[in-house]
C-alpha cells in the first residue's frame, strides 16, 4: 500500500435502522453520484435489524461495484448470542468481499485473511495496529476518541499502512446489552418492535436543563453533535493518512462527500466547506474536540469566523 497526498474517501456502514427501500435507495444514489472509493456496509449495531437490509444487499453491492466502488462488509459491534456468533462466522466464511471487524470474534476468525478493522475495535497505538496487521489487517479505521497526536504517532510508526479516520457523522460513543431506545418507549430489547426505526437519525437525549447531548440509536449511544473534521485533515493527510471515513446520517451524503472531496483535492477551503455542511445538515452542532484532545463535544475552529453558527 502506498501513501498518497490525496487520501480516498470511504463511506462507513449506516448505523441507524432505515427501512429496506430507504436503505437501498441511499446506496443506489451513493453508487451513482458520490465521489467515494470505498463503501463499508451491513448491519453493525443490532442483530435484530438484519432482515431490513438483507433482501437488498445483493442489488446494492452490484450497483456499487458497477460504479467502481470497493465494497467491504461490516460485522456486528457486539456479539453475545449464539445466533450472532453464527452470523459473524457465516459472513466471514461466505463473503467474497473483504470484511471489516467490529468486535473481537471477527478478529479471531479473520486471521490470515485480508481484512479491515472498524472504528469500534480499540486501536489506540501502533503496537496494537502492528499486532492486527500481522494477522492480516490491511486497513484500520481508528476510534473517534483518538487525539491527533496519537494518530500522527501511528502514521509515523507505520508509514506504509492504510489508516482511516472517522471524519464525518454522529460518533458512536457506547454500546450496551440494554436497549435504551426501546426502553424510552416503554419496550424492552427482546420485544422492541423495531421502534428505533422511528428515528432514522437517532433519538435526541437532552440534559435536565434542555441541553442537547446524545442521541440513542437502539443499543448504541451516539453523540448529538456531528463530527466534522474536514478542516482538520491537512496535517494528517500530510503525515500519510490513507482514508477519510464519512458515517451516513439522514442528510444528503452525496453533497457531504462532494464537499470533503473538494477540500481534500484543494479545490475548496475548509471553512467554506464547513459553512456549506451546515446547510446540508441543518440544525446539528458540529464537533471535533476529540481530535484536539478536548472533550469530544467541543468545537475548535481554525479561524474565528468558522465557529460562528456551530459553537
Amino acid at each position: 500500500m502506498t501513501t498518497t497526498r490525496k487520501p480516498s474517501l470511504s463511506l462507513g456502514p449506516v448505523y441507524f435502522l432505515w427501512d429496506g427501500p430507504k436503505w437501498r435507495d441511499f446506496y443506489f444514489r451513493i453508487a451513482d453520484e458520490a465521489p467515494v472509493e470505498h463503501v463499508t456496509l451491513g448491519e453493525t449495531v443490532c442483530s435484530k435489524r438484519q432482515h431490513f437490509s438483507e433482501p437488498h444487499i445483493a442489488e446494492v453491492i452490484e450497483r456499487l461495484e458497477a460504479a467502481g466502488k470497493k465494497v467491504t462488509l461490516s460485522t456486528l459491534a457486539m456479539v453475545t448470542l449464539e445466533r450472532e456468533s453464527r452470523q459473524v462466522r457465516d459472513l466471514i466464511r461466505d463473503s467474497e468481499h473483504p470484511v471489516e471487524a467490529n468486535d473481537l470474534s471477527a478478529l479471531g476468525l479473520l486471521r490470515d485473511r485480508p481484512h479491515s478493522i472498524g472504528p469500534l475495535v480499540n486501536v489506540y497505538n501502533a503496537a496494537t495496529a502492528r499486532t492486527l496487521a500481522a494477522r492480516g489487517a490491511e486497513n484500520i479505521c481508528l476510534p473517534p476518541e483518538l487525539p491527533a497526536a496519537s494518530v500522527l504517532q501511528m502514521l509515523a510508526a507505520m508509514p506504509d499502512f492504510s489508516f482511516e479516520l472517522f471524519a464525518f457523522g454522529r460518533m458512536p460513543l457506547a454500546i450496551s446489552a440494554r436497549c435504551a431506545h426501546a426502553r424510552s418507549k416503554g419496550l424492552t430489547k427482546d420485544n422492541c418492535q423495531f421502534i428505533c426505526g422511528e428515528e432514522p437519525d437517532g433519538l435526541p437525549l437532552r440534559t435536565l436543563d434542555k441541553q442537547s447531548f446524545l442521541v440513542l440509536n437502539g443499543v448504541q449511544t451516539m453523540s448529538n453533535s456531528c463530527a466534522v473534521l474536514v478542516d482538520d485533515l491537512a496535517p494528517l493527510v500530510e503525515a500519510g493518512l490513507s482514508r477519510v471515513r464519512l458515517s451516513p446520517q439522514d442528510c444528503d451524503m452525496v453533497k457531504v462527500a462532494g464537499l470533503y472531496r473538494a477540500v481534500l483535492d484543494g479545490r475548496m477551503d475548509g471553512e467554506e466547506a464547513i459553512s456549506e455542511l451546515a446547510e446540508v445538515y441543518p440544525g446539528v452542532r458540529f464537533s471535533n474536540g476529540f481530535l484536539h484532545q478536548q472533550e469530544g463535544a467541543a468545537w475548535v475552529s481554525r479561524g474565528r469566523n468558522a465557529a460562528m453558527g456551530h459553537g
Partner: peptide, 21 residues
C-alpha cells in the same frame, strides 16, 4: 457499567477524559 466496558467514550465526550485512555 451499563455500557459494554472498554467500548464507552461517553466520559471523554463530556470531559475529554476516558476510562480507555
Amino acid at each position: 457499567c451499563v455500557m459494554a466496558e472498554g467500548r464507552c467514550s461517553l466520559s471523554s465526550y463530556a470531559t475529554g477524559k476516558s476510562p480507555n485512555m
